[in-house]
């Protein structure tokens, strides 16, 4: 059930990426699909995260002046790197997830820019400014979205646990001192 929710979140993220820049320019610096891809990878579903990265990336590239597949390439790579990190390091805490997201955002931008340079298509945005703004925007938005997901998904997990493991009846312990007194 959780992967259906993440898939829906990814579709919404792509739609937001397509439309929000037309509403206000600063939204260009928030990479919504990347946040969802990183979240999926952090959940431990590595194969799914790879496919999410590819499809979300290509969807974003379809309406961009950049190369078709550049975002797909960078996001697939990010999904793999984060999945490998999760396999080796315990990052089940929101505070630990924030630097992971920031690092993923930085790497994503560097790979995206590098692939364009490699294929002779220089992006028109200024290098340092775009990376800095995207890093700030995506990290802030990602932290809020991760908090939101924690509330949505964790509540369900807690409820399911409650249903499966019924609470144990509390039995009163005998006081060993009293027992000794009776004697």
């Amino acid at each position: 059930m959780e992967h259906v929710k993440i898939t829906v979140a990814l579709i919404i993220a792509v739609l937001l990426q397509w439309t929000l820049r037309n509403v206000a320019e600063p939204f260009a610096y928030i990479d919504f699909p990347l946040i969802i891809v990183v979240y999926a990878a952090l959940q431990g579903s590595s194969i799914r995260a790879l496919f999410y990265g590819t499809f979300a990336g290509i969807a974003v590239d379809a309406l961009s002046g950049g190369l078709l597949g550049a975002n797909g390439f960078s996001k697939t790579l990010i999904a793999f790197v984060v999945s490998e990190l999760v396999r080796r390091v315990y990052v089940d805490n929101l505070l630990l997830r924030i630097p992971v997201l920031a690092g993923a955002c930085l790497l994503d931008d560097l790979v995206y820019y590098g692939m364009h340079r490699l294929l002779g298509q220089e992006p028109t945005g200024p290098f340092v400014t775009t990376i800095a703004y995207t890093l700030i925007g995506t990290t802030i938005a990602g932290t809020i979205i991760f908090l939101l997901f924690n509330v949505i998904f964790t509540e369900n997990v807690k409820r399911a646990k409650r249903e499966v493991f019924t609470p144990r009846r509390q039995t009163r312990r005998r006081n060993p001192i009293r027992l000794s007194d009776r004697r």
């Binding site: 194969i47 790879l50 290509i58 190369l67 078709l68 597949g69 999904a79």
Partner: peptide, 21 residues
């Protein structure tokens, strides 16, 4: 299986890019 899937997806994205450039 994950690294192999990743390589396959990266390759397909790269082909797309090279085709689009």
């Amino acid at each position: 299986i994950t690294p192999w899937i990743m390589l396959l997806l990266l390759l397909s994205n790269f082909v797309l890019m090279a085709f689009d450039a």
